[in-house]
Design a protein around this nucleic acid. Sequence first.
DNA 1: TCGAACACGATTGTCCGACAATCTGACAAC
DNA 2: GTTGTCAGATTGTCGGACAATCGTGTTCGA
Lengths: 245, 245
Amino acid sequence: MREQEAPGKSLSDNGRMHPAERSTNAFGGLSLEHSSTVDRVADELRRAVFEGELESGTPLREVALAESLGVSRQTLREGLALLVAEGLATREPNRGVSVARPDPDSVRDVSRARTVLETAGVRHWPNASEEARQAVRRALAEYERAVAAGATYQELNQRHLAIHLSLVGLTESPRLVAMAESVVAELRLALAQIDRVRRNAQDQAGSHRHLLDLLESSDVDGAATELAAHLGGAEAAILERLDLD
Amino acid sequence: MREQEAPGKSLSDNGRMHPAERSTNAFGGLSLEHSSTVDRVADELRRAVFEGELESGTPLREVALAESLGVSRQTLREGLALLVAEGLATREPNRGVSVARPDPDSVRDVSRARTVLETAGVRHWPNASEEARQAVRRALAEYERAVAAGATYQELNQRHLAIHLSLVGLTESPRLVAMAESVVAELRLALAQIDRVRRNAQDQAGSHRHLLDLLESSDVDGAATELAAHLGGAEAAILERLDLD
DNA sequence: TCGAACACGATTGTCCGACAATCTGACAAC
DNA sequence: GTTGTCAGATTGTCGGACAATCGTGTTCGA
């Protein structure tokens, strides 16, 4: 390794595991973060995309980016491959990678996919572990707190999506959660592109609070329909704002 | 490009699109496969894994593999990254990539994930396009034909899984199908490992035929429970055989 | 004048060689 | 038996190189 830069933490460890994390001996609480350069590159690119710094469709030139990030072209390439695999960028052979461009079709598809995943989570509420349920309550509470505190657009957005991820977490399936994370990432990209200029995150605490209340009272079907309505509304809102570009 | 080897076709194009594929002009039926070296490397690795040539846990040494495939280490590395992203291999920092090892937990998780995805497809049958429904009928018919013809273990396996993929196709969501493909790939890996020695694919045409009959008669709920039972059985069978290794 | 052929710069895909960091296992030292 | 040390193997990352391809502007011939 030649250099160490600012460490970033990624939500998804792409299939990597470290020896230190697999044993459960006397030193269970200890762990060390081995962030590779590729990971840090990918993190930085994701950040830039989510932050709206990179407009959708922008070509990500390899030499320029590598130089700008202070890494070799090969390393940057692996980072780009990660972004492409996550759907945040697209690659056209011999023409390079560019920031994904959310078109109406993909927005609809993302909406459909998350509906399936989140509905599965909601319907699993009665069988879910107390831990998973608690995660939903916590995510909602933190979102409400952020709303009350008048947090930034970025934070509100992230906490809002965290609620939806916690719903998928009710399935207790790591793979389903990973899929949801990927889908949500695409959603974040679309939101970032839409709100590149004016970033107005409206308060949606009420809807989610209502959803959780239905779940707490074991009204799973009611919660499912409430969720469907919420997601449908979100899709419509995005499509509408996407239309006037 | 320095060399061209035997072309292989991959089911999933990882975010790549080529100009020749996106337009629908007078020459709609024409297309050209621009398979990059990396794609061919990944294809070959997948084949070897599915074929059972590589036992799970086998370390995939970069220099040796690159030499054996006649590609550079960088290129091989990108191919390995694809496998890792698909869950067919795992990477441990500074220790390299090795063929994924299907443990009971991951088998259960894969089963849960595919249950969610395929159930969503089945429940979408009434709203699905005629094209999607036809794909299910076709997949089943081809499986039955393969069974009758006494096809190889490999072909039977693939056609069987194709049926399940076609069920997810009923959702008409490319992303959900892509997720299902990834999950099914992991399943294929598990099956390949289990049946590495004795490869006995039992005839499961009856169960699937019954499922389709229920769908054709619009008994979606019945089909969903039938599917759940089928998947539960498959999971149990795999776990049982996985136990005695 | 206009379309086809050509030339040229930019960029990607792939290769090669290099080397520090890390892991593994053996072996010596305490 | 535990700890320290050392050599070999392997990965992570770098830099440079070059053919293939793309985009574009230019030239040429009808």
